[in-house]
Amino acid sequence: MSEWVLQADSLSKRFGRKWALRDCTVSIPQGKVVALVGPNGAGKSTLLRLAAGLSQPTSGTIEVLGHDPHKSNEDLLRRIGYLDQERPLYRGFRVRELFRFGADANPGWDMQAAHLYVDQLGISLNDRVNSLSGGQQAQVALTMCLAKKPELLILDEPAAALDPVAREDLLRLLMRQVSDNGSSVILSTHALSDVESICDYLVILSHSRIALCDDVDFIVESHRFLSDPTSSNSRLPDGTTIMDTRISGRGVTHLVKMDLPIVDDSWQISEPTLDEIILAYLRQGVRNGLLDHVETPVNTRVLP
């Protein structure tokens, strides 16, 4: 068994003349709940579809649980649960019929769990998919993934467009699965609060490239705000890379990534929240997009 649930090596995907994903090299360890964050069109769905074997890379390689997902290998398919962004379901089916399909198509299907999940969510097995609300459809679609009992869940915006209660229920259901089965999860999301509360690994995609990929705790530990209220051109401590800069009046505040502990009394140091770090990276992605030719990896770049 591979210790990585997903490994990509200079993975690229092009649609016509547009690159949806470019030169992505990333390794995601087992047992994590991974948040895939990035602006719309950054390539999140493309990456997840590649991981689910629904499309194949233009160049580079991707391995999921140690296998090439596009080879349409039944054994691998059994170990993956994929939830598409559009949550496709056979609309004319009743929930019971969808589950029958799931049971027929998956040897590891847990019918009891499937019944329990929808029961908790107040959905009847006799309900038609058509007649369910958007949130309930999302929950049924997620249940289809969970009842497969996969090792890896690949979820494309599982909680998007849900009301707060439905969203909470859905994420809790997901976390229960993680705690019961030890499944790994890769989910894309726009809600930073999800990242904070349920994810322990973070991948930021920006303009078709990986901008950051690491353990959430490590990310928080390795970033700091450095501010100097009186001068805007003080020398930075060694081993730091500026990710974001805000100039106010005379002073300046940098968000820096640090490779060494900072021992420099001339700066006021404070710890950023995860949200602040993510937003800084996303903003930087926007700036890079405007420059639009950057070839150097983001995490070693120093902005002027």
């Binding site: 629904l54 039944e74 398919l77 993956i80 994929y82 496709p88 056979y90 198509a105 679609a141 289809m144």
Partner: peptide, 17 residues
């Protein structure tokens, strides 16, 4: 068109089957 093929092709069976 309805994207249900994404549901079908990520169950535990090959596309050929």
């Amino acid at each position: 068109e309805h994207k249900t093929v994404r549901l079908a092709w990520t169950q535990s069976l090959t596309r050929s089957k």
